[in-house]
Structures are given as C-alpha cells and as structure tokens.
Simulated assay, not measured.
Amino acid sequence: MPLVDALMSDPSGPGSSGSREAWRLSLPSDREVPAMHLLPDLFQSWQRPGYLHASMAPLCHQEGPVGEGTALLLGLLLSERGRHAGHCRELLLRAAAAGCLPAEECGRQLGSCLRGIGIGMSRVSSALEDCARQGAHREVWEIMKGLLPVFLPGPGERAHSGHTRALEFAAEAARRADARGMFPEVAGIAARKGASGLIRAARRLHEHLGRA
C-alpha cells in the first residue's frame, strides 16, 4: 500500500493531466479504476469520431471486475455513429462473449446519458438491433431492462417520441429473449387511459412480460 500511495500522489504519475493511459498500464488487472479516470475526459470528448472506440478497446483486453464506470463506457459505445459505429458494437459483443458485460448496469448508465447528454434513442435502438441480429438477444434485453426505469418519464414528466421508441424496441427485445417480469414504470404507463403510441407500446410490453 505505501507503493500505491506514492504512485497515486506523484504529480507526474497516472493521475496527472494527459496521462490517463498510464492508469491502464499501471493496473493491468483492474478495468474499473482506468474506466473511472476516463470519465472526466469522456464527457468532453465522447462525440469526437473514434474517441469511444479508442478509449474502450484497450480496456476490453484488461482483466478484473467491472463496475459503474466500465458499464457507462460500454453503454456509450452504443451512441457511436458513422464509420466507427461497427467497431464499437464489436467491442460490446466481445465483452458479452467474454462474460464481462454488465448489461443491466450498462442500460441504467445509458438511460441517464439519454436524459442528460443528448444521445437519441433511435441511435441506441439501431445499435442494439444490430447487436441482436448478431445473436445477443439476451444481452440486448438486459440493457433495455436497465434502461427503461431510468429513461421512461416519471410522474409529472412529459413523454416524447424517444420514450415511445424505447418501449416499442423493448417489446420486440423482450419477445426475442422470451423475457418475463414486471416493471412498475411500464405498468403505470400501460394502465393509462388513451391509445397513444406510448401507451400502446407499454401495453404490448407489459402483456408480454406478464405472460405465464
């Protein structure tokens, strides 16, 4: 521990500005610490083409447990667009195949990002659809399972097209994964009066999840 304390307190060490990569090299058996130290840069640079892939590719080859920081980075891979999008989805699928994809936590973290930093649900659902086509039906559903409670409108909040899109996609993902289990957030929307696209999608998902 004295050596660790010395490393972390050295102003030229891995915590210094511009040397985030040093965290990964210093802790090859820990994904979560390098992931957490990427986050300050992430929220300034995540929209730069290729940034997410370049940041996450090395971490996907690390060892050690995953936590909220790693889950957030993996979830944000689904926001990439353009020529780097396919590479980002490959990283997510590789993590799923290796058994180190915290899918539900990815969804929770991604749901917060959808609310806070301007990622569109259509972009995310398109990426998840691509992952599902490659066989990750269960992982796609688990991501949506984490995303919905965070992303759906709460009491007094106004619904928008992204919420409808999320429920429509979740209903299809649940069908493919043969998922079961109830969501209070979905049940509350499904119980509303009316026949809007949002309510119809919520009812479809709610009915599927409630099947015996």
Rank of each mutant, 00 (worst) to 15 (best):
S79F: 00
E80T: 07
G107M: 06
R115W: 12
L52S: 03
Q62Y: 09
E104S: 06
L91G: 03
G120F: 04
R83T: 10
A54L: 10
M56R: 01
A97F: 11
Q47H: 10
T70D: 07
L91E: 07
G67L: 02
L77C: 09
L77N: 06
S55F: 07
W46S: 05
L59R: 03
A103H: 04
P58T: 00
G118I: 01
M56A: 06
M121T: 11
L77T: 02
G75I: 00
A57I: 08
A85V: 06
P49T: 07
C100P: 11
P65L: 08
H61I: 13
L72H: 06
G82Y: 00
G69Q: 04
G50Y: 00
S126K: 14
R48L: 15
G99R: 07
A98E: 15
L92P: 08
C113V: 10
E80K: 01
H53C: 12
G116C: 15
L77M: 11
M121W: 08
A97D: 15
S122R: 13
A71T: 00
F43C: 10
G82I: 01
C113A: 13
S79R: 02
G82V: 02
E68S: 10
G64A: 03
S122D: 15
C60T: 11
E68K: 06
F43W: 13
L59D: 06
C60V: 10
L78I: 04
R81F: 08
C113S: 12
L52D: 04
L92V: 10
G116I: 09
E80W: 01
E105W: 07
P65Q: 10
L76K: 02
A103L: 03
E63G: 12
H84E: 15
L77K: 01
A127M: 01
S55T: 10
E104G: 02
L91I: 05
H84R: 14
C100S: 12
H53A: 11
T70H: 07
Q47A: 11
G82W: 00
A85C: 11
L110M: 07
G64S: 04
A103M: 04
T70L: 07
A96F: 08
G118W: 00
R115Y: 11
C100I: 12
E104D: 09
S45P: 14
G67H: 01
I119N: 07
Y51P: 03
G111H: 03
G118C: 05
A96C: 10
Q47C: 09
A98S: 13
L78V: 04
M56G: 02
G50D: 05
S126T: 14
L72W: 06
E90F: 11
R83L: 09
L91A: 04
S45A: 15
G64L: 01
L76C: 07
Y51E: 03
R83Q: 12
R48Y: 14
Q47V: 05
G86L: 13
Q109C: 12
G50H: 02
E90I: 12
Q109M: 13
Y51N: 03
